[in-house]
Structure formats: C-alpha cells, structure tokens
Write a protein that binds this DNA or RNA. Structure first.
Lengths: 154, 154
DNA sequence: GAAATGTGTCAACATTGCTGACGTAAAGGG
DNA sequence: CCCTTTACGTCAGCAATGTTGACACATTTC
C-alpha cells in the first residue's frame, strides 16, 4: 500500500532537482519554469488558460510572469478576435532555457527506459496519464470538444 | 520529448492534491505530511536520517516537527545506545492521519491500474524506482551495506 | 448604455525553504 | 579526565511562492 506512494515522492523529487540546478544558474525558480514551460509548449496561450493549468491565482502568476516578460523570456500579443486576451509566446531565449531543462529531464527518462527494456516508455506514459484527473471523469462534462481538448492533460 | 515531462507534472499535481484536501482540514501543510509520513513508515527514525530523506535543513524540519510533537502526532525517545539521538515515533493519531491520506492516494493508483490492466502495478513501481537516483549510481560508493540500505529509496 | 469578462495591481499574510550563529548534552579519543 | 566531535535545538532574518480581498481599466456582449 505504501511503496508506490514513496516511489512517487522520490521520483518527483529527483526529477525536479534536475530542473532546479539549471534554473538556479539563471536566477529563476520553479514557478518561473512552470510558466515558461507551458508558454513554450503552447504558443498563444492566454492568462486564463495558464491559470487553469497551473491551478494558482493570477496574483501568483503575475509575479513570475512579469519577471519572464522583463527579462524577455516571454512576450505578449493582444488576441486577434478578443483584444482583452493576452496571448503569451516564448522568445528564442525562453525556448532555449526550456529545451535545456527538458534535455536533462529526458535523459533521466531515457536512462530509466534503458534499464527497463522495450515497452517501458508507452507503459510509463499510460501510467502517468491514468494517474491524472481528466475533466470528464467526475464533472458534468458539458464542455464542447474544442474546449475539452484544451483542458485535457496533453 | 515533452509528453512525459508534462505527464509527470500533471500526475504529481493531482496526486498531491489528494493529500492537500485532507491536510487542510487538520490545519497541516505538505511539509507536515512528509515528516509524519516517514516517521510513521519508519518508527525509530532519527533526526539526521529524516533530514537525509527529505533533503531540507534542520531548521525547516524543526518548525514542522515541533507542530507535530505539540499536537501529539509524533513522540520522541532518546536512543538506547546513543542518547544524543532522538528517535521519532508516530502516535496512533499520527498513524491514523497517514493512513487516511494513503487511502485516497492508493485509490488513485488502484483506479489507474484498473484502467491499465494486469501487470501495470509492478511496471509502475519499476518505472518510478528507475527514475530515482540511487546512491551507488554516480557517487563514490564508500558506504557500508547497512548505511546504504538506510539511504536507498525504499 | 449597462453588465459581464479578461487582465493588472496593491496590500497583507501564510507556508516552507534557506543561511548564519550560537548553545547544550552526550560520546569518544587521547 | 579533559577535549573534540557529534547530534540536536534555537533564534533571527530573508527569499520564493502560494493565498485573500479589493479595486481599476479596457473590451466585449447584451
């Protein structure tokens, strides 16, 4: 009953430590990483969408987002159809930092899969996604398909 | 290259949220949970061992540990052979809280394994452990076997 | 034109991490 | 038996990141 819980803790602890080392040399924290990561991965993301993914308040988000804007890791553009919406884009500098961190984290995955043999990768992906709440599982599920695809853990 | 990274983030986010809900009703935070969890799982754990597992400073640990002692979720006893060492034990109340949280987190695992079919559980355990740093993998490995077993992610 | 929406911001506060410095009790080596 | 080391506690201050609450502004929508 307990082995999995501990393994989850240790695996995530070490996984995040990979990122922390790189972030520290750039004077960024974990919160900056999370924001920059999703902006880099989903160009044109809006503030509201980012808040839903991260599950934090806009005040917490703005603090780190402003750091990223000031240091030109992220830029914003007003939405074309709705100019109230600010769409976020990573700059080449922002993309580069995300790629650097992703490289070491991917190396950790590759090392694990090399130990575990073929088939481990799709099994790991399936496992992690099965561990994640999906919006249709417990809620009313009234969202349109386009909305759902945006909310679903990608 | 990126799907796994995100999946790891989302899986852990939802996994921890299970615990947060219960902890909030007991006026404890995540830090209290981590301490109480390992004390409950490893009766007789010393301060130094706990610090190694959690990878935090003794000042950070003492803050939450004192809360747990004052509210009688944890008790201490001086070590028998070395009375400088304080050995930590969860009280029945402490064990009960850990069991309550473990129940909802285990339910999440069970739900995932039910979706994924037989074999998913050992694969998940193997995956998470392969993702975790082991003390012998990159360091000098001068520790005695007893020391190693204590350091190894259990 | 009024109301709702998306976003920014100020202020205050809680949790949880850190460093640095210092104290005390017990163990262990000469 | 002193003296050093070890294990631990504690005080003080600071940093990162989360929270609530309140208010402002531009834009869209009814």
């Amino acid at each position: 009953m307990f082995g999995l819980i501990e393994s989850m803790f240790f695996a995530y602890r070490d996984f995040v430590r990979d990122a922390d080392r790189i972030l520290a040399s750039d004077k960024f924290g974990r919160a900056h990483h999370r924001v920059l990561y999703f902006v880099s991965r989903r160009p044109g993301l809006t503030i509201a969408e980012l808040l839903e993914i991260l599950e934090i308040t806009k005040q917490s988000l703005n603090r780190v987002l402003n750091d990223l804007l000031e240091r030109s890791y992220v830029v914003t553009r007003s939405g074309e159809t709705d100019r109230r919406r600010r769409q976020l884009y990573a700059t080449p500098q922002g993309d580069a930092l995300i790629a650097e961190i992703a490289a070491v984290q991917s190396a950790r995955f590759e090392k694990a899969f090399a130990e575990l043999g073929p088939g481990a990768r799709p099994q790991a992906i399936a496992f992690l996604q099965a561990m994640t709440d999906r919006p249709d599982s417990d809620a009313g599920d009234m969202a349109s398909p386009e909305d759902r695809s945006r909310l679903a853990s990608p």
